[in-house]
Computed example of a mutant assay.
Amino acid sequence: MSLFSDNIRALRVRHNISQEKVATSLMITRGRYVKYEDGTSEAPYEILKKIAQYYQMSIDLLLSVDIRKIDVNELLKLENNRLVLPIQVDQMGENCIEVVTQKVKAGYLNGYADPEYIEQLQQISLPFLGVGKYRGFPVEGDSMPPHQNGDIIVGRYVEQLGEILGGRTYIIITRTEGMVYKRLNTNKQNTLTVSSDNYFYPPYEVKASDILEIWEYQCSIARSDKKTEELESTTIKNMFVELKKDILEVKKNIGLST
C-alpha cells in the first residue's frame, strides 16, 4: 500500500464514513474507490482533487505526509478551511516562528509540509508581528543588500499568488531553484518576474507552477551594522572589478595588447 492509500483509509476511519459514502461523494463506484484505498490502483488527478476537497486537505499532504501521525488541528487552516501548513504554538497558544537555519536549509524542500520536520526547527517569538503565520529563512549571497550571509529574513506566509505586490520582497520556495529571496517586478497570470537589489544580477522569471511557498518580508535579524551606503559602495566596486575582468578577457580573445 502507498502512503496515499494509508491516508485516505485513515481519514475515512477517523470520520467514521463508509467506503460507499465516500465513493458516492466522489461520483465513482465503490469498487473503483476500494482500489485506491487498498493501493491496487492510482487515483487520477481529478479524483485526487475531489478527495482533497472532500476532506478539506491539500493534495500535497495526502501524498507526502503520514496523516496517522499528526493532529490536523495543528495545521494552518487556509481559504475554504483547506489544511496545508504545519504550525507550532507556544504555551500561550500563540504561533511560534520556526527558523530555517543554514544547517537545515537543504532539507526544507522535502520537509516543508512534514510536521515532524517543522517541529525540529528552532523557534523564536516576535509578538510585534501580529496576526499571521511567520517563518525565518537564511540569507545567502550578496544579491539583496543590505542583507548578508547569516542574516535571517522573517516572512509572512502568502496563501495566494494574487496577494503578492510588485516592489515588495519575498522568500520564494520553488522546486527547481529551492529557496531564494528576491524583489517582485511583475506578477503575471502564470509567471513572476523577480530581481535582485544588487544590479549586478539580472532579473529572471519564475513559473507559478514551480512555486511551493511564498513568504512576504516582514523583518530581518542581522549581525552587521554596516550602512547601506557602504554596502552599495562595495557592490559598485565589485561590479567595476568584474567589468575590468570582462574587458581584459575580450581584449585577449581578439588579440589586442593591454
Score class of each variant (00 low, 15 high):
residue 236 I to G: 07
residue 24 T to E: 15
residue 161 L to V: 03
residue 183 R to Q: 15
residue 140 E to W: 03
residue 240 F to D: 09
residue 65 V to K: 02
residue 250 V to E: 15
residue 110 N to I: 05
residue 126 L to S: 03
residue 193 T to C: 07
residue 246 D to M: 14
residue 151 D to E: 09
residue 49 K to A: 11
residue 153 I to M: 10
residue 98 E to K: 09
residue 110 N to L: 14
residue 26 L to Y: 02
residue 98 E to H: 13
residue 159 E to R: 05
residue 11 L to F: 07
residue 78 L to F: 13
residue 147 H to D: 09
residue 182 K to C: 07
residue 89 V to C: 12
residue 115 P to R: 11
residue 118 I to D: 02
residue 180 V to S: 09
residue 11 L to T: 01
residue 175 R to G: 11
residue 196 S to W: 08
residue 161 L to I: 06
residue 83 L to Y: 09
residue 43 A to G: 00
residue 26 L to N: 05
residue 174 T to D: 12
residue 44 P to Q: 07
residue 135 R to G: 01
residue 173 I to Q: 00
residue 126 L to I: 14
residue 219 C to Q: 06
residue 84 V to S: 10
residue 235 T to K: 15
residue 199 Y to F: 12
residue 109 L to W: 08
residue 180 V to K: 07
residue 84 V to I: 05
residue 180 V to A: 06
residue 172 I to E: 10
residue 47 I to G: 01
residue 255 G to H: 04
residue 86 P to K: 04
residue 3 L to V: 00
residue 6 D to M: 14
residue 15 H to T: 04
residue 228 T to G: 07
residue 86 P to S: 04
residue 36 Y to V: 01
residue 84 V to H: 10
residue 166 G to H: 02
residue 3 L to C: 02
residue 237 K to T: 10
residue 255 G to R: 08
residue 116 E to H: 13
residue 96 C to V: 05
residue 192 L to M: 03
residue 82 R to N: 12
residue 172 I to R: 01
residue 197 D to Q: 05
residue 34 V to R: 10
residue 80 N to P: 11
residue 126 L to Y: 14
residue 8 I to E: 06
residue 14 R to L: 13
residue 242 E to V: 06
residue 190 N to W: 06
residue 36 Y to P: 01
residue 212 L to T: 00
residue 107 G to L: 09
residue 12 R to W: 02
residue 29 T to Y: 01
residue 15 H to A: 13
residue 88 Q to N: 13
residue 177 E to Q: 07
residue 212 L to W: 08
residue 83 L to S: 02
residue 108 Y to W: 14
residue 179 M to H: 06
residue 103 K to T: 08
residue 71 D to K: 09
residue 65 V to H: 07
residue 204 Y to D: 06
residue 49 K to F: 15
residue 118 I to W: 04
residue 240 F to K: 10
residue 135 R to Y: 08
residue 22 V to T: 03
residue 95 N to V: 12
residue 136 G to D: 01
residue 68 R to K: 08
residue 203 P to V: 01
residue 133 K to S: 02
residue 41 S to T: 04
residue 217 Y to I: 00
residue 12 R to L: 06
residue 75 L to P: 00
residue 2 S to Q: 04
residue 190 N to F: 12
residue 9 R to C: 09
residue 77 K to D: 02
residue 192 L to Y: 09
residue 185 N to W: 07
residue 157 Y to H: 10
residue 164 I to P: 00
residue 50 K to S: 11
residue 83 L to E: 05
residue 217 Y to N: 05
residue 155 G to V: 06
residue 153 I to N: 00
residue 93 G to T: 11
residue 129 L to T: 01
residue 52 A to K: 03
residue 122 Q to G: 13
residue 122 Q to L: 14
residue 53 Q to L: 10
residue 101 T to E: 09
residue 9 R to M: 06
residue 257 S to I: 11
residue 96 C to R: 14
residue 191 T to R: 12
residue 143 S to L: 11
residue 252 K to M: 13
residue 197 D to K: 02
residue 66 D to K: 07
residue 30 R to Y: 10
